[in-house]
């Protein structure tokens, strides 16, 4: 009994502060936006306006007239594909740059310049190259996510302690054994830092990219809602975008914890 009470107190201690804060902010929002002539709807109006969207996330009337689930699912699919490509290529390039002095000298300046280009600036170029919105959006995600993955992987590889390299030399591990037994686990904390930054940036970029390419996707949903002056729909979409962004970050962090076998702290 005592145990249950202590546990309940612990859970309440974690849950209550954000719930109270949320209630407080919601109340302020409600009060401020309930004034006549307010440009934005209060939360109560958001819920009543969007009630149909909230309770029917799965409806599909064809075209882009779909429930929010389908929009979010389309966005997640684009991010998933672009991000997976970025993770694969980014880790491979990071390993190359991290282990070869010459690869680093040749490629690092290039990366440092390219990574400062804002994601959306790539979109016109990729539209010109692919002549289609879908691969262009995926390319934008790819090019957004890849830089932190490359740079962090390379730093991780370069920071492998000399001790571990000495162990590998005494054991005469071959290249592949060194890669799997020493390099990847030793660099895992850095790699997963890069992967987490990458997933965050991807999710940031997808909304903007979808606003421009159109079609099914949460970005275009928001833009479409703005064009139809459905401000409540926009607010609901933003809530979903935030929650999914949070879970994507947690997902990568959790994977890092599993793969890193205790070396990746979250």
């Amino acid at each position: 009994m005592q145990k249950i009470r202590a546990r309940a107190a612990q859970v309440a201690g974690v849950l209550l502060p954000p719930v109270i804060m949320l209630g407080l902010l919601g109340t302020i929002w409600e009060l401020v936006c309930s004034q006549p002539g307010s440009a934005l709807p209060p939360p109560s109006k958001v819920v009543t306006d969007t009630w149909e969207l909230i309770i029917h996330p799965l409806y599909d009337n064809g075209g882009i007239d779909k429930g929010l689930f389908w929009h979010l699912f389309a966005s997640i699919k684009r991010v998933g594909l672009g991000y997976a490509l970025a993770a694969g290529a980014g880790i491979a390039l990071g390993v190359l740059v991290g282990s070869s002095k010459w690869a680093m000298r040749a490629l690092d300046p290039l990366f440092q310049v390219l990574r400062t280009i804002p994601p959306l600036a790539w979109l016109p170029l990729s539209l010109a190259a692919f002549r289609d919105g879908q691969p262009s959006a995926i390319f934008v995600i790819f090019i957004t996510a890849i830089w932190p993955i490359i740079i962090n992987t390379a730093v991780g590889i370069r920071n492998i302690p000399q001790d571990y390299r000495n162990v590998s030399r005494v054991l005469r591990l071959n290249g592949f054994q060194f890669f799997t037994h020493i390099m990847l686990p030793a660099a895992a904390p850095y790699i997963f830092t890069g992967l987490r930054i990458g997933i965050g940036l991807s999710w940031l970029a997808i909304v903007a990219a979808e606003m421009l390419i159109g079609g099914v996707g949460i970005g275009f949903f928001i833009w479409d809602a703005w064009n139809s002056s459905l401000i409540s729909d926009i607010i609901l979409a933003l809530v979903y975008v935030g929650i999914i962004g949070f879970f994507l970050d947690r997902l990568v962090a959790f994977t890092g914890k599993l793969v890193g076998r205790g070396t990746v702290s979250v």
Partner: peptide, 19 residues
């Protein structure tokens, strides 16, 4: 000429692989 298991080293800071 090169390191090898016939001359095993115990390093000062143990150098165990933490993972």
């Amino acid at each position: 000429h090169q390191p090898g298991p016939d001359r095993a080293v115990v390093f000062q800071n143990h150098s165990l692989l933490p993972w």
